[in-house]
Computed example of a mutant assay.
Amino acid sequence: MTLAVQHLVGGYSQIPVLKDISFQVEPGELVGLIGLNGAGKSTTINHIIGLLTPMKGSIALNGVTLAQDPQSYKSQIAYIPETPILYEELTLKEHLEMTMLAYGLDQEQAWQRAHDLLKTFRLANKLDWFPANFSKGMKQKVMIVCAFITNAKLFIIDEPFLGLDPLAVHDLLALIATVKAQGAAVLMSTHVLDTAEKACDKFVLLHAGEVQTQGTFAEIKANYPDAGESLNDIYLSLTGVTRDE
């Protein structure tokens, strides 16, 4: 499943936030969409998942756009938002059942995956809990489990590290590695650049709604040899941001 974003211009009003954004995410690849707050990461994601309509440009999954085939397009995507979105009147078990129905999953296979994921994220004994009983980190884990029980070909993960404890971050990265090995594409937005540098195969560096550069870390470092040794240093150098700002 190849995600192709071509010359995307868009935003929330008549003034575009995104200015001619282009990049691809290939099967078996984790691409880090990185940048500081306000760089345009979440706006880009909102266009990809269909919450916003591009002013110009196109977004396609294996050549198919949302307008051409909404059901096929959306069924290929699993999305984990930055802020967990759960239904207060549904238990964890009911959230999982709703996800299985929405994606048309085989119940037996989906529950097998669900039980494995619930054990991994230490939620196995909380199937009858309601969202009011969960901490923010636990709510985020519920979103992760719901996303990864699907057969999605493209996983979109928005700022996953902020509410997770170190063990959960490790488990999430291991889970991403597993779906990558199965051929899924993963787009992950984050401004936690130290973790992104270690985990991602490629990067798209956004600043002020524009792509500053993209490629593997080795490629970016080779293109900007004087910018620094770490992804964080390179990003700050390219965007003209100092550590005192």
Rank of each mutant, 00 (worst) to 15 (best):
A60E: 09
I149L: 02
A110Q: 12
D106K: 13
A78S: 03
L33D: 04
S189P: 11
L101D: 13
A185Y: 05
T216V: 02
I234M: 09
I48R: 02
R113C: 07
R243Y: 15
A222P: 09
V5F: 05
K153N: 14
S22N: 01
A218I: 11
D116K: 13
A184K: 05
T91R: 00
A196M: 11
G11L: 09
H191M: 03
G10K: 06
S13G: 13
A132L: 12
L117F: 07
E89A: 08
T213S: 13
Y87P: 03
T239I: 02
M138E: 00
E197Y: 01
L18A: 08
P70H: 03
K136H: 11
S72Q: 15
P160C: 07
A218K: 10
C200Q: 09
E108C: 15
I49F: 12
N62D: 14
R122T: 15
S22W: 01
I149K: 01
K41I: 06
Y73T: 06
S42I: 02
A132W: 06
S22P: 01
E108W: 15
G32H: 06
L66K: 05
G240H: 04
A222D: 13
G183D: 09
Q76D: 10
I59H: 01
T213C: 15
H7A: 06
F203S: 11
L205Y: 05
G215M: 08
A102C: 14
A147E: 05
P160T: 03
L90P: 01
V145W: 02
P225G: 04
L193K: 08
E82I: 04
D158G: 07
L175V: 01
H191S: 07
W129E: 04
K221P: 12
A208Y: 13
M100C: 11
Q24M: 14
Q112N: 14
T83Y: 08
K153Y: 07
A181F: 05
L18E: 06
D106N: 15
P225W: 08
D226G: 06
H207D: 13
G10Q: 06
S58Y: 05
Q76T: 12
T242D: 08
T120I: 15
S58M: 05
I21E: 02
D226V: 12
W111Q: 08
A184N: 04
T44I: 03
L117S: 07
L172N: 01
S230V: 15
M143P: 03
T99M: 12
E89I: 02
A168G: 02
V142M: 00
S135Y: 04
S135N: 06
N125Y: 09
A227R: 07
L30Y: 02
L105A: 12
T2H: 11
G50P: 11
N46D: 14
A177S: 10
E219N: 10
L33R: 08
A218L: 11
N62S: 14
E26T: 14
K56I: 12
L127Y: 00
Q109T: 15
G57R: 02
G137R: 00
G50A: 11
M55S: 14
T213M: 11
L30S: 04
A39H: 05
G63I: 11
L118I: 04
G50T: 09
E89M: 08
E97Y: 07
L96C: 01
T44Y: 03
G209N: 07
F134K: 04
A152D: 09
F130L: 07
T239R: 05
L105N: 10
